[in-house]
Amino acid sequence: MNATFKNDVDLGLSAPTKYLPSKYFYDKKGDALFVEIMNMPEYYLTDAEHDIFKNQTLNLISALKINKTINFDLIELGAGDGIKTKELLKTLKQLGFKFTFIPVDISQNALNNLEKTIKKELPYISMNTKQGDYFNVLEDIKWFQKPKVILFLGSNIGNLKDGKAKEFIHKLSLALNVNDKVILGADLIKPKSIVLPAYNDSKGITKRFNINLLERINRELNANFDLNNFKHQPEYNEKEGIAKSFLVSTKKQNVEIGALNKTFTFYKNERIHTENSRKYNDTIIEDITKVSKLKIIDKLTDSKNYFADYILEKTAE
Rank of each mutant, 00 (worst) to 15 (best):
Ala3Tyr: 12
Ala3Pro: 08
Thr4Val: 13
Val9Asp: 01
Leu11Thr: 13
Ser14Trp: 08
Tyr19Arg: 09
Tyr19Val: 10
Leu20Ile: 14
Lys23Val: 06
Lys28Phe: 08
Lys29Met: 09
Asp31Met: 06
Leu33Tyr: 08
Met38Ile: 11
Pro41Asp: 11
Glu42Cys: 12
Tyr44Trp: 10
Tyr44Ile: 03
Thr46Leu: 01
Ala48Ser: 14
Asp51Phe: 02
Phe53Gln: 00
Lys54Phe: 05
Asn55Ile: 07
Gln56His: 10
Asn59Gly: 08
Leu60Trp: 00
Ala63Leu: 07
Leu64Met: 14
Lys65Ala: 14
Leu74Gly: 02
Leu74Asp: 06
Gly80Asp: 01
Asp81Pro: 05
Asp81Glu: 12
Lys84Tyr: 00
Thr85Glu: 01
Leu88Ala: 04
Leu89Lys: 01
Leu92Ala: 09
Gly96Leu: 11
Lys98Glu: 14
Ile102Gly: 00
Pro103Phe: 04
Asp105Ser: 09
Asn109Tyr: 15
Asn109Phe: 14
Glu115Val: 12
Glu121Gly: 10
Leu122Asn: 07
Leu122Trp: 06
Ser126Leu: 10
Asn128Ile: 09
Phe135Gly: 12
Asn136Thr: 15
Asn136Ala: 14
Ile141Leu: 12
Ile150Asp: 00
Leu151His: 00
Phe152Tyr: 11
Gly154Arg: 02
Ser155Lys: 03
Leu160Gly: 06
Asp162Lys: 09
Asp162Phe: 07
Lys164Leu: 12
Lys166His: 07
Glu167Trp: 05
Phe168Ser: 00
Phe168Ile: 04
Leu176Glu: 01
Lys181Gln: 09
Ile189Ala: 05
Pro197Gln: 11
Tyr199Asp: 02
Asn200Gln: 15
Ser202Met: 15
Gly204Arg: 13
Ile205Val: 15
Asn210Lys: 03
Asn212Glu: 09
Leu213Met: 15
Arg219Trp: 08
Leu221Ala: 07
Leu221Pro: 02
Phe225Ala: 04
Asp226Ile: 12
Leu227Ala: 10
Asn228Cys: 09
Glu235His: 11
Tyr236Asp: 01
Tyr236Trp: 09
Asn237Tyr: 10
Lys239Asn: 12
Ile242Val: 15
Ser245Val: 04
Ser249Gln: 05
Ser249Met: 06
Thr250Phe: 05
Val255His: 04
Glu256Gly: 08
Gly258Gln: 08
Phe266His: 02
Asn269Pro: 03
Asn269Glu: 13
His273Pro: 06
Glu275Thr: 03
Asn281Gly: 12
Ile284Cys: 05
Glu286Ile: 04
Val291Glu: 11
Lys293Asn: 14
Leu300Arg: 02
Ser303His: 11
Asn305Asp: 13
Leu312Cys: 07
Glu317Tyr: 12
